[in-house]
Design a protein around this nucleic acid. Sequence first.
DNA 1: AGATTGTATTCCTATATCGGAATATGTCAA
DNA 2: TTGACATATTCCGATATAGGAATACAATCT
Lengths: 127, 127
Amino acid sequence: MPRAATTTDVFNAIAEPRRRKIIEILAGGRLYAVGELVDSLGLPQPAVSKHLGVLRKVGIVSVSKRGQQRLYQLNAGELKPVHDWVKNYERFWTHQLGRIRETAERKARERSARTSASRKHSDQAED
Amino acid sequence: MPRAATTTDVFNAIAEPRRRKIIEILAGGRLYAVGELVDSLGLPQPAVSKHLGVLRKVGIVSVSKRGQQRLYQLNAGELKPVHDWVKNYERFWTHQLGRIRETAERKARERSARTSASRKHSDQAED
DNA sequence: AGATTGTATTCCTATATCGGAATATGTCAA
DNA sequence: TTGACATATTCCGATATAGGAATACAATCT
């Protein structure tokens, strides 16, 4: 099974950079026609419609009709679960800025080790 | 191209429920051996190792050795970008709780329309 | 009715990813 | 060294995308 129950999940919906972009545009607050989004994003219309479809399914956006256009609107409330989840880790960086430095170093070490690994089985961190 | 530059991206890393679970466990703050995670998660060891690999590549976790075990540690700072991003939408639900109700209704309507759609080309919202 | 515009859907293909099983690697103990 | 234990990696198959092109559908205009 690929990516488990990831689908139709808010976390998955925002995993796509372009979908986040769409959300950012819609954050303007008003109603946006698909055409506007297409222009703003510089993506082919079908692509935009497909991404909107995902966001729609998850409930992040809602649609309404006006003539032959579909007006999309942000339903930001659906993003709250994400906010609630990452909020739990806020404390890790709001306090003790110095600790971040140290952490960053370790991360850098690990990251480079990881990247250059697989040559043999190098060490990647020894604390 | 599937899921664009999603890979090796924090947003993608946390799109996986099990990876979020791992992060939650590691939030305990101390060092956790892979075996502990395997027990806590009830997943086969290779699966856990693979998820840890993703988190490692993104920098969300770091490893250190102790004997034959690998001790994983949370690098919560990597989650800050996510927090920063969703924080921009916080205002949508922190103020006017009533508005959420209204929004929820619209969402529900849209969602059910979406679900039952594709029979022909039904309407999905007319506002 | 026919043409035009706005948007959604379908078909196809390439690729990423997950899970599972098997195996490899590494480390420690006897 | 051989063996047990801890973890990582590889190989496999199934499936879910994402993008592109073409097309379908809907609404409006003539």
